[in-house]
């Protein structure tokens, strides 16, 4: 079909498009030093256009959380570059990262909402904190926080509660609202629905779709192809620290190219459409191992 090397697909959105919100190039992250060191990411290049949702799919040990942490400045790149909102951030120290985060350009939501929310702050205080840091006046901050609570389908009655008094699903929606109040150019979501039951998962995924429709750029990192498939414009497949395939969501799922992507799609339990049979999977596994 295409001759493009290796597994890169024409991105469609990229040609002549405005500057990407996130541009990662040749990123390498190593843990540990010298011979005992191990690279968690190797030569990863990925860009996110304004308003685009990119799903990053990866299983245990793929490096997907390392990617999220690198983009948020929580781990250092050993090589390559990261640009956030046009700003080269690769060499930033803690102070400049803090300043960048304070401006609210890039926000994050983790799997466990208790990691993105201070357990001692009321929901209201959690929501307005990023705005206060930006210098927004308190009354206006509260008004804006209420509006965002509405966007994640939560009632304003929750404002006075503590995170511990909310259900897991409500907490995750508060975490999403908190990530949004500063109207960031980019939100990184690392397994945002994995800890939720199916009803809450459906709700959070719906919210992500609404955000996407409203033009927020999202990087949605997950091990679950199903939840990414309905939410992302493009899918990037991470396997053992390398990006093995990037393409339009529908193409990656229906015409996976890389052996690992084929195995991944072929392994997903489905009700009707049998994606691969046992012998197919067996052959793919042998190719991956060999």
């Amino acid at each position: 079909m295409t001759t493009a090397s290796p597994e890169a697909r024409p991105a469609g959105k990229e040609a002549g498009a405005p500057a990407p919100v996130l541009a990662v190039e040749g990123l390498e992250v190593r843990y540990g030093r010298g011979r005992r060191g191990r690279s968690a990411l190797r030569d990863v290049s990925l860009s996110v256009a304004p308003g685009e949702t990119v799903g990053v799919i990866g299983e245990t040990g793929s490096g997907k959380s390392t990617l999220a942490r690198a983009v948020l400045g929580l781990v250092r790149a050993s090589a390559g570059s990261i640009r956030v909102g046009g700003e080269e951030v690769t060499g930033y120290g803690n102070r400049r990262w803090r300043a960048l985060r304070r401006r609210g350009i890039v926000q994050y939501v983790f799997q466990d909402p208790l990691r993105s929310l201070d357990p001692d702050l009321t929901i209201e205080d959690s929501l307005i904190e990023p705005l206060l840091i930006q210098g927004v006046e308190r009354t206006e901050a509260v008004d804006r926080a209420r509006a965002f609570l509405d966007r994640v389908h939560l009632s304003a009655e929750l404002l006075g509660r503590l995170p511990g008094e909310l259900s897991g699903g409500q907490r995750q929606r508060v975490a999403v609202a908190r990530a949004l109040v500063t109207e960031p150019a980019l939100v990184i979501l690392d397994e945002p629905v994995s800890a939720l039951d199916s009803a809450n998962r459906v709700q959070v995924l719906e919210i992500l779709k609404e955000l996407r429709a409203a033009g927020t750029s999202l990087v949605f990192i997950s091990h679950d192809l199903g939840s990414i498939a309905g939410t992302a414009d493009r899918i990037a497949v991470l396997y053992r620290g390398e990006l093995v395939e990037v393409g339009a969501a529908r193409d990656v799922i229906n015409h996976p190219r890389h052996v690992y992507t084929r195995l991944l799609v072929g392994s997903a339990p489905t009700l009707h459409a049998r994606t691969a049979d046992r012998s197919e999977r067996e052959a793919l596994r042998a190719r991956l191992a060999g």
Binding site: G230, R250, L271
Partner: peptide, 28 residues
């Protein structure tokens, strides 16, 4: 799977079809 009788079975299937891969896979 082809003719679920109980509403709960249909709910389980609907959830899967909405957020599983089924919806996005063109039949092979």
């Amino acid at each position: 799977l082809h003719d679920p009788q109980h509403a709960y079975t249909r709910l389980l299937m609907a959830e899967h079809e909405q957020y599983g891969l089924d919806k996005f896979l063109t039949p092979k």
